[in-house]
Design a protein around this nucleic acid. Structure first.
Lengths: 169, 169
DNA sequence: TATTGTTATACTCTATAACTATA
DNA sequence: TATAGTTATAGAGTATAACAATA
């Protein structure tokens, strides 16, 4: 992409080389972002059209699906990386649709456990199946070994922690 | 990631293999999404903290920066893939800050051309420079040749068109 | 009639901060 | 005091649809 052409004038050869590397990184980033966004938008749209659900609600249900014992609000907040108030509203909506339930805790009356309802579990299973098929379809331009390569490269990229709230150097 | 474990019981070996491939695609997708989101969030946060600007406004300015002749509202809408009303509000905000300007068109009095102001251009240059350095930093876990590999693989992924509003097969 | 752009409205997600109840 | 969760508020981005002006 040429979205971000540099406007610097009169630079040396070394700087040119550095800028070339910079531009390569930029192009890579724009391509990465574009791939991810396009797939995400497709998923988002299909989830809404076919199941009347949003991605955050789907994600919250996915968190619960893998934890049959349920999760507390604060744990959901931590895992979904959003603040508590937002979890409250997402859980409210899902509870209104009887897809999840709040369960009192005997040990701590401030807290409770969020679980999928039976219906929530069954609905989620259907959604997850469709979701998985969409992903397979959308990634299909890449063969299996290419997907492995990509997985590996992204693993390296992911390995370095980005902690924007704390990192300073 | 194991976010979306399948709950199907009693499946045959072939189905297991298919599901393994499916799971591999899912894991790949979740990793891709996670990498993109983490970088994007970091960029978003730094743009706001250091320049008081949002990503869509930055993106709109980037579109204008590469088109010295300016762009119409509808062309901006097309390129940014958002509806017209949203472009109006983003341009309104940028115009209020004197970073872009609307310019009357003599040939069509319904339309006009959006351009960066001199200040907008200078501000954008500074932001783009910082932005580029952030990208270089955030992609630095990967070496140059790994970045090339990643770029290539994503190119393949991107090549297949996803047109969610039209595709039907 | 079709197109350009604006306005109005509504919805979702998000963060922040004040608040209640409990530990 | 600290923690769990809720509520209230505000802001951004988005889509849809009705609208005015012009082509």
């Amino acid at each position: 992409m040429t979205t971000l052409e540099i406007t610097t004038q009169s630079i040396t050869d070394m700087e040119v080389r550095a800028h070339d590397g910079h531009h390569a990184s930029l192009r890579l980033w724009l391509r990465l972002l574009s791939c991810a966004t396009r797939i995400e938008d497709t998923i988002r749209q299909r989830l809404r059209e076919q199941f009347g659900i949003t991605l955050p609600r789907f994600d919250l249900m996915a968190q619960l699906e893998r934890e049959p014992e349920g999760l507390s609000m604060s744990e959901l907040s931590r895992r979904m990386m959003v603040t508590g108030g937002n979890v409250t509203s997402i859980v409210d909506q899902l509870e209104k649709e009887a897809l999840v339930k709040r369960q009192m805790l005997l040990t701590d009356r401030r807290s409770f456990t969020i679980k999928l309802t039976a219906e929530g579990r069954s609905v989620f299973t259907a959604m997850a199946k469709a979701h998985e098929a969409w992903i397979v379809e959308l990634l299909s331009p890449l063969g299996a070994s290419q997907q492995e390569d990509l997985h590996h490269l992204l693993g390296i990229l992911k390995s370095r922690k980005h902690n924007p709230t704390q990192e300073k150097t």
